[in-house]
Write a protein that binds this DNA or RNA. Structure first.
Lengths: 359, 359
DNA sequence: AGTCATTTTGCAAACGTTTTCAAGTAGTGT
DNA sequence: ACACTACTTGAAAACGTTTGCAAAATGACT
């Protein structure tokens, strides 16, 4: 009743021991489900816990050498539906295994990664998951050396050779897009790039150029617009592309969010999709299928990626000695209704003779 | 080199002390920026930390009575863009104050709330934020009594009278929608409800009925379809509504996601929005404005809600004695292009004589 | 030199657990 | 009854910090 403003202490293992009339080691044993505890005492302890409303203190447990039952997750940006989806599936997988999630966002600041990783790996978390578009990775080596469980979730296929990684055939996905577009007859294909410092952005641009080259189509720099994976940049890029004296007949955006922006620019100018302009995105976030027309895009198995990474990490936590796995999940080109052959193009003409113009 | 499979211990405060040739309390004092440490020693300690790559162990610190610099966040579902947006803004606000986020998802299971809250409040976190559509709140009383810092983020306006709450004028938002629709001349307005166990769902349905009553319009149960805030349920509900022998001329969905579903059902039947059917949503998630046509909806200040809640919590952590605040943020009806007067309706006829039919 | 206040330091006791160790208690087979 | 297991228990030592207390060092006055 006359509590000081300081927090009233909550029941500890010792309180429970006193209440149940046993030693506190016994309580700990009950807590951890050890064999060799007399059923009677176990009952008494359980009752006492119930009466006192006891909750284990995770900090103390983990300090004492037990598990913290906490997994760290470092992401660069929560706002992206891509990230959100993955986070959700990680969360679900972890929850079923009885682990909690400590979420850290770098808000795009690379240098924060190391700080968070340090924090997490020194006691806080039993393992760490990283969803960051890393280029150079100074601190990963340390984790490896310390034999600390971690898994990388990557949106590109470049890796360091010693880290456990979950990734997708995303480069192939970009190639598939280009192939599909070219087969439909498109010759002037616009490209809206991703954030310059993300490896995935470079990868997709590279695939774009490679596919063009493979089909002997010329590369027109004017058709490539920078973006940063955000809606706004997509809008600007699409505007630039459609303002071209000779606008593209198809636009490939490096992610769905920017493809949505293409829709809006097109709509505002009365350009019909797919009749006047074909559009392809990347990621297949949930909204892609709700668009009008439904967006053709590269499906990244976001849910499976999260799940797999979480499972891998859980395994690594169980058995830290196990060698680093690398899992590559397949992407899939999901063809919906946002693409068709360009206007004035007839499939009857072999594609090599089609109206390629170069610049 | 010959490390046992067990993790190599990382540097502790004692290692630093040895390296620097001081006692470990001195190191602690340097760590916590205490006055009364000789500049020379401080330097030596700092250098030693640097050399050893020391990182503080948060578990230990918080066990010993310091702050964990961690805030718990309990949400019921990460998949919702509504939630995602709020989480993001909380995360940002917390990050600037140097706090980390421990995220717990109940996946819709009410009973998990208490478990997580227990976990978080016993050592793990310095304070707790709850974004849950709570009805009865057994465990909140305990928190209050323990004087533990917490803040509730609510999507409805009902509250317990002693908890600090951040909420919006969401009931009024629903009333605004109805008023707008009725003023446009709609008399048969369909309603797609939210998840039955969320207070906000009841609140919006209530507002729907109240608005109808206030305008002397009859309530037709057939026009109210159950939903659960998910896309699928919205699709089913919209289908049922538009299958009615006398379908509504406008549909009010209790959140945007379900409104999107209405768009799709309408499209699949060649019903034009807003010409043949007006649609209104709730929340104003980012996609709402990208829809075709852009969706009229009730804007909830998601970012501000998250920010405010985070700030309130931070304050409470600084000063646990301070009284519980209650902040009500305004909603706003954002009129875009998904509504217009019903077909065959002319504003010249006073609304009372319009074709209300009842059932 | 002697007193005092002030700054600087180290020791030791928490914090709430897990875990090792050794000792105690039954339960068996002879 | 006796030795042998196998089960059951409690005491005590970690884990890495913070913090209260008291001792030591310093400096400033007399």
């Amino acid at each position: 009743m006359s509590d000081k403003p300081g927090r009233p202490r909550s029941a500890t293992i010792k309180d429970v021991a006193r209440e149940a009339g046993v030693s506190y080691s016994t309580v700990s044993r009950v807590l951890n489900d050890y064999r060799h505890v007399h059923p009677d005492k176990r009952r008494r302890v359980l009752d006492a816990m119930e009466r006192l409303g006891y909750t284990v203190n995770l900090q103390a447990r983990s300090l004492a050498g037990g598990r913290s039952q906490m997994v760290g997750l470092v992401v660069h940006d929560l706002g992206n539906p891509y990230t959100a989806q993955i986070v959700q599936s990680i969360d679900e997988e972890l929850a079923t295994a009885g682990y909690e999630l400590a979420l850290h966002t770098t808000h795009g600041h690379h240098h924060k990664e190391a700080v968070y990783v340090d924090l997490l790996t020194h006691g806080l978390a039993d393992g760490v998951l990283m969803l960051i578009p890393l280029g150079p990775t100074p601190y990963l080596r340390q984790l490896r050396d310390r034999n600390y469980p971690y898994v990388i979730l990557s949106d590109h296929q470049q890796h360091d050779g010693y880290s456990p990684v979950v990734t997708t055939t995303s480069r192939q996905g970009a190639v598939d897009v280009m192939q599909c577009l070219i087969e439909l007859g498109h010759r002037r294909i616009g490209f809206i790039g991703g954030r310059h410092d993300f490896v995935s952005a470079a990868e997709r641009l590279d695939a774009y150029r490679a596919a063009l080259a493979a089909c002997n189509l010329s590369f027109d720099p004017a058709l490539v617009q920078a973006g940063d994976y955000q809606y706004r940049s997509g809008y600007a890029a699409a505007t630039a592309l459609l303002d071209l004296p000779q606008p593209p007949t198809a636009i490939f955006a490096a992610n769905d969010l920017m493809a949505f922006a293409v829709y809006d620019v097109a709509r505002s100018r009365g350009i019909r999709i797919p009749k006047d302009l074909s559009v392809v995105g990347f990621d297949d976030v949930p909204q892609a299928s709700y668009m009008h027309p439904p967006l053709t895009t590269v499906r990244q198995p976001l849910i499976e990626m999260g799940r797999t990474a979480a499972r891998l990490l859980l395994q690594a936590i169980e058995n830290p000695a196990q060698p680093a796995d690398m899992v590559v999940l397949p992407t899939e080109l999901v063809i919906r209704d946002s693409c068709q052959p360009p206007a004035h193009f007839s499939r009857r003409f072999p594609s090599t003779t089609a109206e390629t113009k170069g610049v």
